[in-house]
Amino acid sequence: MKVTVVVVFYKQAVEQSKTFSSLKKALLDRRDSLEDLNIILYDNSPEKQEFAAEKYPGQIEYVHDHRNLGIATAYNYAWQMAQQNGSDWLLLFDHDTKVTEEYIEQMLTDHRASEEVVAVVPKITTNGIMVSPVYSHSLRPLQSERPLEGDQEKPVMAINSGAMLKVSFLNEIGGFNKEFPLDYLDHWLFHEIYARGKKIRLLRVTLEHELSVMDYSTVSLNRYKSILDSEMKFYREYKTDLHSSYRKQLVKRLAKQLLVVKNKRIALYTLKRLLGK
């Protein structure tokens, strides 16, 4: 099984990142596996880093893209490289996921994916709480039961980091949707998997990941706009069965923003989008 691995960085030194440090320990010492692995370090930071790929074993490529077009562009680059080098799977990482040897072992050897299974994911926890995957039939999935390991018959959503995807499926859907350059790309991806009659496999292994949570006291207006625009697009054009409920929830969010969020421009933007502006 040949795998292309992509790690996306932003304003993070490669060798100091949680993902690369743990990958180095869990993967780069497995010389028996390196022949079938291509690793891409895709850096969206403003400045290029000095990174000597040649001092590490295996096939490692450092790519600097100062444009910072988001993770969809980085993933699409890796998907194209995976096609060129004949990889069967594409493994995705952010720069802040701690990889374990058990995870690598299961990802590379333990699963026997059927034709229906086009994604393999671990359990992801944050502060001891399982946050991925979750069932996707609800707007509040963290308040519901969690999926058990194995092939998932019911639609679920998983975060991008730590997920391994069949290159042939990515070919089928034309890669990653640039309409979701950063936010809600994972929602779109796993929605597409089930919309096309495919499944994901949940492994028994668990990874700890620092899941980013929107904090109105620190989030910038531009960042909030990006999140809200992608969120609205997803529920309006893809998860249409929840669109009505989502609109009602957005009204409640607006009320909360008006009452407790100091930056009233955030509430004003929510109101504008609710009014269709």
Results as ranks from 00 to 15, higher is better:
residue 147 P to W: 10
residue 161 S to F: 04
residue 181 P to L: 03
residue 218 T to S: 14
residue 233 K to G: 02
residue 140 R to D: 11
residue 209 H to A: 03
residue 157 M to W: 08
residue 227 I to L: 10
residue 157 M to L: 07
residue 147 P to Y: 11
residue 131 V to E: 11
residue 131 V to Q: 09
residue 206 T to H: 04
residue 166 K to H: 02
residue 120 V to T: 13
residue 227 I to V: 15
residue 115 E to F: 02
residue 210 E to G: 08
residue 182 L to C: 06
residue 223 R to V: 05
residue 117 V to I: 15
residue 115 E to S: 13
residue 220 S to G: 15
residue 188 W to P: 03
residue 170 L to M: 12
residue 173 I to T: 05
residue 169 F to N: 01
residue 151 D to A: 13
residue 228 L to R: 04
residue 213 V to W: 09
residue 206 T to C: 08
residue 137 H to K: 10
residue 150 G to C: 07
residue 195 A to K: 15
residue 174 G to L: 03
residue 193 I to T: 04
residue 205 V to P: 00
residue 225 K to C: 09
residue 105 E to W: 06
residue 205 V to L: 02
residue 192 E to M: 15
residue 183 D to T: 11
residue 218 T to Y: 04
residue 206 T to R: 09
residue 145 E to T: 09
residue 213 V to T: 13
residue 113 A to Y: 00
residue 157 M to R: 07
residue 133 P to C: 11
residue 189 L to F: 14
residue 176 F to E: 00
residue 147 P to L: 14
residue 222 N to W: 08
residue 221 L to G: 10
residue 103 Y to Q: 05
residue 168 S to N: 13
residue 150 G to R: 06
residue 144 S to N: 12
residue 209 H to W: 03
residue 233 K to F: 09
residue 186 D to K: 10
residue 141 P to H: 10
residue 101 E to R: 09
residue 128 G to Q: 12
residue 201 R to E: 12
residue 142 L to H: 14
residue 216 Y to E: 07
residue 212 S to I: 12
residue 125 T to F: 06
residue 115 E to L: 07
residue 140 R to G: 00
residue 109 T to N: 15
residue 210 E to D: 15
residue 198 K to V: 09
residue 233 K to N: 12
residue 151 D to R: 09
residue 190 F to S: 01
residue 138 S to A: 11
residue 132 S to T: 06
residue 228 L to V: 12
residue 203 L to S: 02
residue 123 K to F: 13
residue 154 K to I: 04
residue 107 M to Q: 14
residue 117 V to D: 02
residue 175 G to I: 07
residue 204 R to C: 05
residue 191 H to K: 14
